[in-house]
């Protein structure tokens, strides 16, 4: 029993460390990238959560895909993801990254309908583009997921 207690508390500490030090690389296209850059900057300061912008994917833990992924940039995104070292996480930002957004639905041939068709996604942030607060909400959600206590929250239903 004591071993179990020890190992769970050590695992908790390690999870805490991983969730509080999410160094990120970011791929940006369009308006989501603008909002993402705002979030990295002074006013919304992602470094509060221990996240630093890294330009070397080998040193990063979190891949923030902001904006559209095209068939042509799919390969580059995959390569970027493969260059990262596990444990690694992916955040999809905005409608285009979530499921292709306005482009995929209108039948554009060159658009990948969602980042999750290329790399596994851990957290989806809705918005077109999402506010910086929404992006930080996504980071917090991811931290909860890493710490293993994410609560599946459903928006309240209107009773009939």
């Amino acid at each position: 029993m004591k071993d179990g207690l020890w190992s769970t508390s050590i695992a908790k500490v390690l999870d805490w460390a991983r969730s509080n030090s999410l160094w990120y690389v970011s791929t940006g296209a369009g308006c989501c990238a603008d909002e993402a850059l705002q979030t990295f900057g002074c006013r919304y300061d992602l470094e509060r959560f221990g996240s630093i912008l890294k330009t070397d994917p080998a040193q990063a833990d979190l891949l923030i895909v902001s904006g559209l992924v095209t068939q042509k940039s799919k390969e580059a995104l995959k390569a970027l993801y493969d260059r990262m070292i596990a444990p690694k996480y992916v955040m999809a930002l905005g409608s285009c990254a979530n499921c292709g957004g306005a482009f995929a639905r209108s039948g554009a041939y060159c658009v990948v309908a969602g980042v999750d068709q290329v790399v596994p996604v851990d957290v989806y942030v809705p918005g077109c583009p999402p506010r910086p607060e929404a992006i930080m909400n996504g980071i917090i959600k991811l931290q909860e997921k890493i710490q293993g206590n994410a609560i599946e929250r459903q928006r309240p239903r209107f009773e009939a």
Partner: peptide, 27 residues
Amino acid sequence: ARVGPNQAGAAGFLQGLADLLKLLQKQ
């Protein structure tokens, strides 16, 4: 003019520890 790390520990003092433990977990 920003805040800097303030989530890990009081005023982010444990940020270095979090970074270290995270880096040690890398495969």
